[in-house]
Write a protein that binds this DNA or RNA. Structure first.
Lengths: 209, 209
DNA sequence: CCTCTTTAGTGATTTCTGTCACCGTTCAGG
DNA sequence: CCTGAACGGTGACAGAAATCACTAAAGAGG
């Protein structure tokens, strides 16, 4: 288990009493690269705090296609798991680890105590909700107002911000994340390559800007 | 001012102590039909609780076009105003009254006291955030996965759920809300009329399903 | 080394949506 | 009653994106 001091380094908003409480009740779990951490329709049994690693969050359509929304990383938490957990609701999103990811699982039975006795906890919950909410608003901007070329640029920027300039992604995966088709993405990437914005390799893309 | 009992009828999650506190510190304000209640970029000076009426929430693009997201009505609150208020952040959305709307304005200086001393308040805040978040996810579903004809049907359904089968909307307004163009909406509505789904009149639409 | 699968590139075609142009109707205000 | 603005209908066209069809190259696994 984590020491309270380590926890406070990752979640600075936690006071030492709260960090100690969480360290005592939570369970650490590791997800491997590519592992699905949460499926649409699944019920939350615990709130998940990300210790380290990177997680991609997706929205799934009825027909099975998926749409990338945002990343979570160390210090973040899944917004929905914090409240759905308390209401026993099914998840509306899918979460996948993009690299080895460590999380703290806090069983839902402690939620009420955390909420009522630890000021730092609900500040953390509110901040989590607020920042995810704002990320969703930016997602809406992009799909409502922008064309695919701009969306692709924004997507690549998001990825490089989190994962570095060298992206191990196929065109098929990108098309998937943007809910488009491989051919469209291939053509747009080719155009970006002609404009010196990326260098294309098999199974990877180097972002040059 | 409202009596605590009236407040509890509209916000059942408030206990009587909380309702009394809010009744004591809040100010009532009325917005007329079509009035802008909150502009993008404006700073929150108060959290707004909707007492009665209907409010449309929009996301605005950099270029000035607007995109309808969801309604608020009596018993709801603006999610962003509850937390942006505490951090003095600019609004990321635009809110417009579609009919005469009464709100309670709670000055931001009371937020911390409400949060720490009133369990019902942060339950309310969390529930507000959660439900708006889920509405945003449905919005994303629609623009990411659906064509304009399905989006139009969903839009009309949302409107009739809140405002009744008889909608006083021009094709131009609908195009605006969906970030499309009048001609497209006119054609799709005509098709829906041929399929007995709507009846079209000047300045109004009757939804038949 | 050979084969099969995955990945990528590209032309042709179609569908959906946005834009332009134009016209008729309705309605408010002089 | 007249006029101009707002609203709505519709054809023609343009552009973006999806889909289909095919090819070539790379890499994995026998």
């Amino acid at each position: 288990m984590d020491t309270p001091e380590e926890l406070q380094k990752i979640f600075p908003i936690f006071d030492s009493k709260l960090a100690a409480f969480i360290a005592g009740i939570s369970e650490r779990r590791t997800f491997g690269e590519g592992e699905i951490m949460m499926k649409t329709g699944q019920y939350f049994k615990a709130t998940m705090l990300i210790i380290s690693g990177k997680v991609k969050l997706y929205r799934e359509s009825d027909e099975g296609s998926e749409f990338f929304m945002y990343f979570l990383e160390g210090g973040n938490a899944c917004a929905l798991s914090m409240i759905c957990a308390t209401r026993n609701q099914a998840s509306q999103i899918m979460a996948m680890a993009v690299e080895e990811t460590e999380v703290l699982m806090i069983p839902i039975r402690y939620m009420d105590e955390l909420m009522t006795h630890h000021k730092g906890w609900y500040y953390f919950v509110l901040e989590t909700y607020r920042s995810r909410f704002e990320e969703l608003l930016v997602v809406i901007d992009n799909i409502a107002f922008k064309n695919m070329d701009e969306r692709l640029e924004w997507y690549l920027k998001q990825q490089t911000d989190k994962l570095g300039k060298h992206l191990n992604l196929t065109h098929q995966q990108i098309a998937h994340d943007l809910s488009s088709s491989r051919e469209v993405i291939s053509r747009l990437l080719k155009k970006m390559e002609r404009n010196q914005m990326v260098a294309l390799h098999r199974n990877s893309i180097e972002v040059l800007i």
